[in-house]
Design a protein around this nucleic acid. Structure first.
Lengths: 181, 181
DNA sequence: ATCTTGATTTTATAACCGTCGAATTATTTT
DNA sequence: AAAATAATTCGACGGTTATAAAATCAAGAT
């Protein structure tokens, strides 16, 4: 569920009042409309929005369509919602970049944009074992498997902290693109 | 702080991204604009909105206006925000009704609207002690102090559950207008 | 089957909001 | 003092959203 839609659904004074009202007890549409001094169609409109993101559920009871609060839907903090959203977007972005830059496991070109470049380097870094020390030749061979200009990639991996040079070769510092934290 | 404004401030994809980004570390305007691929003016616009409701704070550091996250501002759950909002609105409504219906401690007229009527009856109920049993005459005298038609008020108080008739008089069930829960 | 009543959908309108570019302000460097 | 740089504000465009009225739909009741 998109955090934006989720939050937009509550960021409206009428819908806040509706949720408030449904905290008391389940109610049917006209009941809510009367309580808030709005038309039935307006109430229905807002209830539908709240239902679309899972804040309320409805069921038909004889004559009436009763709406009730989905009790756990409002428990999360804003921080959790934002963090979750960030993960979703980060993963989506990574996938997009990888789809764009790789074809059949081969790197087509190293992107110039730093954010994209980091994703690509992180993907290549997966081919190494963390903390193991490789010779330059080993590194070249592994990279050459996905991209011809292995020197360029090796240098970028050094620059972005995936590798560090030690006296007897190159040590792998990380194997996955991780945001700071 | 109005819950609606508060939530509207986060219910936007750009502002969510900004908050996400500021979770890493404080940044200045241009830095954010570049990171999100938006104009500086747009970034400034959103940062101001976030600042207005206290999600971020800013301070000038020589050249740059750096914005940082207000760490505790995102801790509350949606439920808490809504409940708080409800209390604020309920109190505002109560005050409005009481200001409208009472003058110098005297009830001018019993409102016809049920919600308003409940507020007024709750106010009158404050003059009684909970669980004590009063004679009809005592009840009349207490009510007559604020309104002439004490029989009407007494009946309404019975109807709305403030009083109940027992063999030796009238018992006070509640003394404050409380919403269900 | 028709009527009544509650609820939804549709349609139209008005207000709001996000975005950008340009002009402006504020501050630092020269 | 002048030039440069960062940030804000302003004006305008385009898209979205809330709202109510009217039409439609659904389901009991007569």
């Amino acid at each position: 569920m998109s955090a934006e839609l989720f939050l937009k659904a509550v960021a409206d004074s009428t819908r806040l009042k509706i949720l408030s009202s449904l905290m008391e007890k389940p109610k049917f549409v006209e009941e809510i409309a009367m309580e808030l001094n709005i038309t039935v169609s307006t109430a229905s409109f807002h209830l539908k929005k709240l239902q679309a993101v899972g804040f309320v559920v409805s069921k038909k009871e004889q004559y009436y369509q009763t709406y009730s609060l989905n009790p756990h839907s409002l428990d999360r903090s804003l921080k959790d919602i934002i963090k979750e959203n960030r993960e979703i977007h980060k993963n989506a972005f990574n996938k997009e970049v990888l789809d764009e830059c790789f074809m059949d496991g081969k790197l087509l070109a190293l992107p110039v944009q730093i954010k994209k470049r980091e994703v690509v380097l992180g993907e290549i870094a997966k081919k190494f074992k963390k903390n193991r020390i490789y010779s330059d030749k080993e590194v070249h061979l592994i990279i050459a498997d996905v991209f011809d200009e292995f020197i360029l990639i090796k240098n970028e991996m050094l620059k972005y902290g995936y590798l560090e040079r030690v006296e007897n070769g190159l040590r792998v510092l990380k194997t996955l693109s991780k945001k700071s934290e």
